[in-house]
Amino acid sequence: MTEKQNSRPWLLDVDKVTVKLAGREVLADATLQVARGEFLGLIGPNGAGKTTLLRSILGIVPISGGRISVAGVSGKASIDRIGYVPQRHEFAWDYPINIHDTVLGGRTRQIGMFRSAKDADYEAVAQALEKVQLANLADRPIGELSGGQRQRVLVARALAGAPDLLLLDEPFTGLDMPSWELLLSLFEDLTNGGVSIVMSTHNLPEAMDICDRVALLRRSIRAVGTPEDLLQPPMVTTWMETFEVHRKSPLLKSVGIDTQMAAAEETAQ
C-alpha cells in the first residue's frame, strides 16, 4: 500500500462490473478499489474499456452485472459525489457561452433544474476558477480559448460541484508544459485534501511517474499496484498480455521494465 492508502477506507469500489454495448461485452468482472485521497492511473490499449469504465462509474453507461459505490453508496447518491473531466473534443466549444457560465454548469445538480443559482453556487465557481488560474478570463467566450485553457475550464467545471471523486479522461493530452504542470500541481493539492482521482491515459510513462497506483485494464482489471510493484520482473507477462506486445517491445522499455532481468529470472526458475 502507498502512504495514502494506509489505514484509509476505499472511496470508490467497483465490484465485478460487466458492461455490454451493442451485444459486445466491453467489460467483464472488472474490480477496482480506490482509496480516499489516492491518484490512480487507468491504462490499457485502445478499446480496452477505459472510457467505458469511467462512464459506468458516472452512471452514463448502464452495467449489466456487478456493483459500483462511492463512499459506501450507489446509484444517484454516488453520482452526486463525482466530478468528470471528459476529453476536450467531446465538448461543444463553438457554443456561445463564456468561461464563467460554462463552469457554473458544473453546479447543475446543486442548483436544480429550472432554478436560479445562489450565492453559494457563484462562490463555488469563483473558487474553481481561482484553482485553475482563469479568474481573470471569466468573461471570455470559450470558443476563443487555447487548448490548455479549455482543459482548465473543464477541470474547473468538474471542481465546481465539490466532488469527492474526480474522473479524468486523457486530461494531459496535447497540453503545453505550463498547463501540464499547473494541472498536475492542482491534482496533487486535491488528493492531499482528500479528493480521489482516477485518470485514464494513453501516456504510460506519465502514469507510472505521477500516480500513486496504476491499474492495467483490458476488458477486466489485469493488475493494480504501485508503479514499483508493476515494474517487478514477474509482471512482464501481464503487461505483454494486456497490450498484446512481445517481450522486446519498446512499450515495456518506455515504462521502465527491465526485460533482460525478467528473462533471466524466468530462466533461473
Rank of each mutant, 00 (worst) to 15 (best):
R152G: 06
M199N: 01
V61H: 09
A207F: 01
E123M: 11
Y84D: 04
A22S: 15
F243A: 03
Q87K: 12
A28T: 03
E144K: 12
L216F: 08
A162M: 03
A268R: 10
V236L: 11
G225M: 03
L134K: 00
V214N: 01
E170V: 13
V70G: 15
G161L: 05
V153K: 13
G47A: 09
L175I: 12
A124R: 02
M1C: 09
L167N: 05
F243H: 00
I60M: 11
L165F: 06
V14K: 00
S200D: 06
A71T: 11
A22E: 08
E25Y: 00
A138Q: 10
V224W: 00
L217A: 14
A48C: 07
Y95P: 00
T108G: 00
S64N: 14
A124L: 12
I82W: 01
G83S: 02
V125D: 02
N203F: 09
G193S: 11
R81S: 05
K4Q: 14
D29Y: 07
G106M: 01
R55F: 06
A92I: 13
L167W: 03
P250Q: 10
D15R: 14
L21R: 14
K4V: 15
M235A: 07
W239H: 03
R218V: 09
T173W: 12
A71P: 07
A158P: 04
G66S: 11
E3A: 14
L252S: 07
S185W: 12
L58H: 07
R115N: 10
Q5D: 13
H246I: 01
T52Q: 04
H202N: 11
V132S: 06
F114Y: 10
L166F: 04
A135W: 04
G143I: 00
A156W: 05
T201V: 11
V155K: 12
K16F: 01
F39V: 15
D229T: 05
G194Y: 02
W239A: 00
G37V: 09
S220G: 04
A120S: 15
R36I: 12
G105C: 13
E206I: 02
T52K: 03
D29P: 00
V85S: 01
V14L: 05
T2A: 14
D229E: 05
E170S: 10
T226Q: 00
V61Y: 04
G225S: 08
W10H: 12
D212M: 06
V245G: 02
A268M: 11
L11P: 07
A262R: 04
S146G: 10
L175K: 06
V132N: 02
I221C: 10
A160R: 04
S220L: 00
A28M: 01
G106Q: 02
